[in-house]
Design a binder for these strands. Structure first.
Length: 1000
RNA sequence: GCCCGGAUGGUGGAAUAGGUAGACACGCAGGACUUAAAAUCCUGUGACCAUUGCGGUCGUGCGGGUUCAAUUCCCGCUCCGGGUACCA
C-alpha cells in the first residue's frame, strides 16, 4: 500500500479534533513548558510558505517537549485590529469586523492543514470585546498608577495620594516631566506663581478634587499631553516612532510631519533603565538586544544651566561631555524652542522668524536627506559661560532637535564635528581644549588625552575632568550629573476606527475613566470609517445613542494603537475565557513566562519592547509574578521567493533592402509577442556565441515575417536587418516547472500572450531565468502552503521547511527540493511493507547494525533538538532510513521508535503507522526514547592518517589500543613507509578515536 | 558615518570541543526497467591535471599570523544583509 498522505492527514485532523488530543490543562504534577508563536495579523492575502516556518519550528519543539513529559502550552490567536481591514472598510463601507472574520477563518483553515498541536480552545483575538475588555482594564490600571523612583516600581495612585496627605510632594520621588508644573494653570491654585513643583500636605489638603486631579494627571503612567507627534496626513493618524521608516510611514510609505497634538501617552520612559538592564537576563539573539539598547539610547552626562544676559530665563542643556565646557563658544536652540521668540532682539527678528518658518515647513524627510547643508540664524542674545563668565552668542539651527534632551545644546566646536561645521559656516570662534591635538577640519571626539585652555580642568583626563566638573556644577547649583534616554514616552492614541476604544469620557474638558464594571466599552456604530469634516477621528461620527455607554459631555474618540492588544496576549492564552480577571492567579503562576518565543526580528523596537514594558508594569502591580515576558527567543529568517523570468524580444524596427520605405509593410507593433529561451538571452547579454544566437533569433524572425507578410512583399527576405533588444518579465511560478515554461498555460495566463511565439533551446524547451526576491503577488512568485499540502502533504511540507537550513537564516524557496523529503517519507513508509505490498513488521530482536543505527539516531536527534538545530534532525532521519533500507530492517521495535523520532516533524505520518503497529493512544503522548551507549561502542576505529596535516590513507585499528600502540601500528604499514619516503617522522600526534598526524 | 550579523560545490546546506571539508538533499550526467513516458532503482558528480591503472595539485570571500593540524582562534581588508542616523 502506498503512502496516501491526503487520506491520512484528513483522518488525523478529524481524529485529533474529536478526541481533543492537543487540549491542555494546568497539571501540577508535570513541569510546564510554554512555546509561543508571534501573533499573526490575519491579512487578506493569506499565508505563503514563508509564514509557517516559525510555526513549524515551534510545533516541533512543542511536540518534542510533550514527548519528554512536559505539560506544553502552545496556543495560537490573532492580532486582529489594524489598518488593512480599516482601509478596506473605508473603500467598501463594509464593517472591518466582517473582513477580519473572513480573514481569520481563512488563516485558521490554512493553519489547520499543517497539523499543528495548538490547543484551539485557547484561541484569542484582540478585536473581540471579551479580549479587549482586558486591554481596556490594563489601560485603567496604567491610568491609576504612578512610578515610584524610590522603590523603582509602579504603584497605585491611591498610595501617592496618601503620601501627599502626609508629607505633600516632598517625600515623593516620581517619574515625572522635569518641569511639569510649568504647564499647570496656576491661576486655579492657591500657591501662586512661585510654585516650582513642590507642595506641602497642607497645600494638598486645601485643594479641591479638581485641583488635585490636575496635579495627579502629571504623575499617572497613562496621561494626556500636548506632544509633538508624527502626523501622517494620508493615513489620517499619528504614528509611533517605530511605525516610521526613513521619514515615511512604514505602511504605505506616506509622508509624515511633526504636529503638536493632545494625545494619550504611556510613561514607558520610567522603565527605560530596567528595560536596558534586564536585557541581560534574556536569552535572546544579540542583535535584537542591541537594537533595543540603541533604541532606548541611554547616555550619561550632565545637565547644565546657562544664564542669559539681560533675561531671567536660563537655557538648560544636556551634554555627554561636560568636561569640554571650556570649549563652548556658542549655543544653539532648536527652532521650536520656547525661548526663541522671547530672546530674539529687534535687529534679528526678521531673520529668525524667516528661519523658524522655513524650518517648520521642512518635512522630517527633507531635514534628514539634507544633513550636509548647515543652516541657522543668530538670535542676538548672549548667554554667560558658567565658569569663565564670557558672553556666548545664542543661535538657532535645525540640527538641534526639539524632541531630544532639552532642545538646546552647548556647542563645542573643537570636540564635535557638527558644531565645528557650524562654527566654520558662520565664522564663530573655536577654542582648542585638547592638548597636543591639531584641529584642522576634524573635531576631536576621542575620549583620550588631556585638556588644555580649560581653567580648573586643564591637564586632566576626560574621566577626571567629567567627575570634577559635575562636582563643581552641583556645588554652584547650576547643573548636575544626568542620564538621558533617546526613548520617548509612547503615544497611545490613534485617530482610527478599528482599534480598542479608550474607557474614557470627558466632563468639562477633563478626562474621566469608566469603572471596571462598565467594561468592555465596545465600538459604536459609525456611518463611515473616515475622519469627520472637522478632522476628528472616525469615532466622533458616532451619535450619543450609538455608544453602548455614554457619559459626560463626550466620549474619547481616539482608539488604541495596534500594539495595545499584542502587548499582553501571551497572558490571555493561559486563561482565555476568564470573565472575572485578565488571567487567574493560579494559572499565571503555573504557566509563568514564555519559555520559547518564535518570531520575526522586525518587531524589535515595537511589540517586543512594549510587551516587556507592560509585563514589568503588570508585575509591579502584582497582577503577574514575573517581569519579563519571553525568556528565550529565536528569530526565524525570511523565506524569499524564487521568481521566474521570461525574456521578451522587443523588436524596434526591421528593414528589407529595397522595400524599406513601403508604408504597407506591417509594423513591428502588429507582430505577436516573441519570447526567447534563457540560453539565448544569456548569450545576448554576455555578447558571446553571437552567431549562434543571432541565427536562432533572426532565422525565427524571418520565418515570422514570411507568415505575416502579404504576398506582394514575399521577395528575398534573407537580407532583412533587425533592430531589437530584450526585456525580462516576471511570470507566474505556478506555470513554470523546473525552470521550464508551460507554454500552453502561459498562453492562457494573459490575453496578450495568446498568440505568443517562442524561440526554444536546442532541446525544444523554453527555459526561464530566475531571480531571488521577496515573496509577493507583484512578482508572481508566491507559493502557498495549501498547494504544497495538496501535492505533497503537510508532513512533507513541514519537514522540508525545516530541512531548508537554520531557521534563523533567510533563504530562497525552491519548490524543486521538496521531492527529496517527500521521497524520504515514502521510503520510510515502505520499510513497513513487504514486496507484496502487505503491512509486515517482524517481532523479536533487531540486527546489531539496525540497533546501532537506531541508537545513533536517537542520540543525534535528541542532541540536535536540545540545541534547536531543526534542519540537521531531518538529515539524521534520512540517514537512518537509508541505513535501515540497506540493512533490510523491518523490526517492529526499531521502526516504532523511529516513528516517535520523526513524529514532531511528520505527526500525521507517524500517527498512522503507530496505529497500524497496534497502538491505541496517540503517538504524541509516547515517551521520548533514550539511547543506549552500549550499541554505539565500536571495537574498531577507522583512523585517518595525515602527513603534515594532509589526509593520506585510512587505517582501521582497535579502539582499545594506547597512543603508543596506534603510533606503532601506523608506522608499520606499507602506506606509511610510502609517504615517509625513507625519512623518519619528526613527530607523531595521536588523538585516540580521532586522528593520526605524522610530521615529516 | 556608526552598531550588529554573514560569506563553504551549479543550488539549499553539514562539519556541535582546533582533528577525514562538502554529510543530507536538490539539480545535472549516464545506466536499468518500459513500445514510450511517468514513477522507481543503480552509478557518477568541488575545481584542475593525469586517466590504462596508481594517483597528484589546489580548494571554505581576500591578505597575513598562531598551531603538528584552521571553515573553526588572532590581526588587517573586500563584498553582502540587518539596525540606526544631525540623539548633543
Amino acid at each position: 500500500m502506498n503512502y496516501n498522505f491526503r487520506e491520512i492527514e484528513a483522518k488525523w485532523h478529524k481524529k485529533w479534533a474529536e478526541e481533543g488530543t492537543y487540549k491542555v490543562t494546568e497539571d501540577g504534577d508535570k513541569e510546564k513548558f510554554y512555546v509561543l508563536d508571534m501573533f499573526p495579523y490575519p491579512s487578506g492575502a493569506g499565508l505563503h510558505v514563508g509564514h509557517p516556518l516559525g510555526y513549524i519550528a515551534s510545533d516541533v519543539i512543542a511536540r518534542y517537549k510533550t514527548h519528554l513529559g512536559y505539560n506544553v502550552l502552545h496556543p495560537m490567536g490573532y492580532d486582529s485590529f489594524g489598518l488593512p481591514a480599516e482601509q478596506y472598510a473605508i473603500q467598501t463601507g463594509q464593517h472591518p469586523a466582517i473582513t477580519t472574520e473572513e480573514n481569520i477563518s481563512r488563516y485558521r483553515q490554512q493553519l489547520e492543514k499543517l497539523g499543528f498541536n495548538y490547543d484551539w480552545s485557547r484561541e484569542v483575538r484582540t478585536s473581540s470585546p471579551e479580549y479587549y475588555k482586558w486591554t481596556q482594564w490594563i489601560f485603567i490600571q496604567l491610568y491609576n498608577s504612578w512610578y515610584n523612583e524610590k522603590t523603582n516600581k509602579a504603584e497605585s495612585i491611591d498610595a501617592l495620594v496618601k503620601a501627599f496627605e502626609t508629607n505633600g510632594s516632598y517625600a515623593v520621588d516620581a517619574a515625572i516631566e522635569k518641569e511639569w508644573y510649568k504647564t499647570l494653570d496656576l491661576s486655579q491654585f492657591a500657591f501662586g506663581e512661585y510654585f516650582a513643583g513642590e507642595f506641602t500636605a497642607t497645600d494638598w489638603e486645601v485643594m479641591n478634587d479638581e485641583q488635585r486631579e490636575l496635579i495627579l494627571a502629571h504623575y499617572r503612567l497613562a496621561f494626556l499631553s500636548d506632544t509633538w507627534v508624527n502626523w501622517c496626513e494620508e493615513l489620517g493618524t499619528v504614528l509611533a516612532n517605530d511605525e516610521i521608516k526613513d521619514g515615511l510611514s512604514e505602511r504605505g510609505g506616506h509622508p509624515v510631519e511633526q504636529r503638536l497634538m493632545k494625545q494619550w501617552s504611556l510613561r514607558i520612559t520610567a522603565y527605560a533603565d530596567r528595560l536596558i538592564n534586564d536585557l541581560e537576563k534574556l536569552d535572546w539573539p544579540d542583535s535584537i538586544k542591541e537594537i533595543q539598547r540603541n533604541w532606548i539610547g541611554k547616555s550619561r552626562g550632565a545637565s547644565v544651566s546657562f544664564t542669559l544676559e539681560n533675561y531671567n530665563d536660563k537655557i538648560e542643556v544636556f551634554t555627554t561631555r561636560p568636561d569640554t565646557i571650556f570649549g563652548v563658544t556658542f549655543m544653539v536652540l532648536a527652532p521650536e524652542h520656547p525661548l526663541v521668540a522671547k530672546i530674539t532682539t529687534a535687529n534679528n527678528k526678521d531673520e529668525i522668524n524667516a528661519y523658524v518658518k522655513q524650518a517648520m515647513a521642512r518635512s522630517e524627510r527633507d531635514r534628514q536627506s539634507d544633513v550636509k547643508t548647515v543652516t541657522g540664524a543668530f538670535t542676538g542674545a548672549y548667554a554667560k559661560h558658567p565658569f569663565s563668565g564670557d558672553l556666548i552668542p545664542v543661535w538657532i539651527a535645525d540640527y538641534v532637535l526639539a524632541g531630544y534632551g532639552t532642545g538646546a545644546i552647548m556647542a563645542v566646536p573643537s570636540g564635535d564635528q557638527r558644531d565645528l561645521h557650524f562654527a566654520g559656516t558662520f565664522d564663530l570662534p573655536v577654542v582648542n581644549i585638547f592638548e597636543g591635538i591639531e584641529l584642522t577640519k576634524e573635531a576631536y571626539s576621542e575620549k583620550t588625552g588631556k585638556l588644555q585652555n580649560s581653567g580648573f580642568l586643564s591637564g586632566m583626563t576626560v574621566e577626571k575632568a567629567t567627575e570634577e566638573v559635575i562636582r563643581e556644577l552641583e556645588a554652584k547649583g547650576i547643573g548636575y550629573g544626568k542620564t538621558n534616554y533617546r526613548l520617548r514616552d509612547a503615544i497611545f492614541s490613534r485617530q482610527r476606527y478599528w482599534g480598542e476604544p479608550f474607557p474614557v469620557y470627558y466632563e468639562n474638558g477633563k478626562p474621566k475613566l469608566l469603572s471596571e464594571s462598565e467594561l468592555p466599552l465596545t465600538l459604536p456604530k459609525v456611518d463611515k470609517y473616515l475622519p469627520t469634516e472637522s478632522g476628528e477621528p472616525p469615532l466622533a461620527r458616532a451619535r450619543r445613542e450609538d455608544w453602548p455607554i455614554f457619559k459626560g459631555d463626550a466620549m474619547e474618540c481616539n482608539t488604541m494603537p495596534g500594539w495595545a492588544g499584542s502587548s499582553w496576549y501571551f497572558l490571555r492564552y493561559m486563561d482565555p475565557n476568564n470573565k472575572n480577571a485578565l488571567v487567574a492567579p493560579e494559572k499565571v503562576d503555573y504557566w509563568g513566562a514564555v519559555d520559547l518565543y518564535m518570531g520575526g526580528a522586525e518587531h524589535a523596537t515595537g511589540h517586543l519592547l512594549y510587551s516587556r514594558f507592560w509585563t514589568k508594569f503588570l508585575s509591579d502591580r502584582g497582577v503577574i509574578p514575573f517581569d519579563e515576558p519571553f525568556k528565550k527567543m529565536v528569530n526565524q529568517g525570511m523565506i524569499l521567493g524564487r521568481s521566474s523570468i521570461v525574456y521578451r524580444l522587443e523588436l524596434n524596427s526591421y528593414m528589407i533592402p529595397g522595400l524599406d520605405d513601403d508604408p504597407n509593410l506591417p509594423s513591428p507593433k502588429s507582430f505577436p509577442e516573441i519570447f526567447v529561451t534563457r540560453e539565448i538571452y544569456l548569450d545576448w547579454e554576455k555578447d558571446q556565441k553571437v552567431n549562434e544566437f543571432k541565427y536562432n533569433v533572426e532565422h525565427r524572425l524571418g520565418t515570422l515575417l514570411h507568415e505575416l507578410l502579404p504576398e506582394e512583399f514575399q521577395m528575398d527576405l534573407s537580407n532583412t536587418f533587425w533592430e531589437y533588444t530584450f526585456s525580462a518579465l516576471h511570470v507566474d511560478v505556478s506555470i513554470v516547472h523546473n525552470d521550464e515554461l508551460d507554454i500552453p498555460a502561459f498562453r492562457k495566463w494573459r490575453i496578450d500572450y495568446e498568440d505568443a511565439v517562442f524561440i526554444l533551446n536546442e532541446n525544444e524547451k523554453y527555459k526561464c531565468g530566475h531571480e531571488i526576491e521577496k515573496m509577493s503577488k507583484r512578482w508572481f512568485n508566491v507559493v502557498t502552503p495549501d498547494s504544497l499540502c495538496e501535492e505533497y502533504g503537510a508532513d512533507t511540507l513541514r519537514m522540508y521547511e525545516m530541512f531548508l537550513g537554520p531557521v534563523e537564516q533567510s533563504k530562497p524557496w525552491d519548490t524543486q527540493g521538496i521531492s527529496g523529503v517527500h521521497n524520504f517519507l515514502r521510503k520510510f513508509w515502505r520499510l513497513f511493507y513487504n514486496e507484496k505490498g502487505e503491512f509486515d513488521v517482524s517481532e523479536g530482536q533487531a540486527s546489531k547494525a539496525a540497533m546501532k543505527t537506531l541508537h545513533k539516531t536517537i542520540k543525534k536527534i535528541t542532541e540536535d533538538l536540545e540545541r534547536l538545530s531543526w534542519n540537521t534532525v531531518v538529515s539524521a532521519c534520512m540517514i537512518a532510513v537509508n541505513e535501515l533500507i540497506t540493512e533490510k530492517c523491518n523490526n517492529k521495535k526499531v521502526l516504532e521508535t523511529m516513528l516517535i523520532l520523526v513524529s514532531p516533524y511528520a505527526p500525521h505520518f507517524a500517527e498512522e503507522l503507530w496505529e497500524k503497529l497496534g497502538n491505541s493512544t496517540s503517538i504524541s503522548k509516547a515517551p521520548w526514547p533514550k539511547y543506549d551507549e552500549a550499541w554505539l561502542k565500536d571495537s574498531e576505529f577507522d583512523y585517518p592518517v595525515s602527513f603534515n596535516g594532509k589526509m593520506r590513507f585510512k587505517l582501521s585499528l582497535s579502539t582499545e589500543l594506547s597512543k603508543e600502540e596506534v603510533e606503532k601500528a601506523v608506522l608499520e604499514t606499507e602506506d606509511a613507509a610510502k609517504y615517509l619516503e625513507g625519512k623518519s617522522p619528526k613527530k607523531v600526534i595521536v588523538v585516540p578515536k580521532r586522528i593520526v598526524n605524522i610530521v615529516v
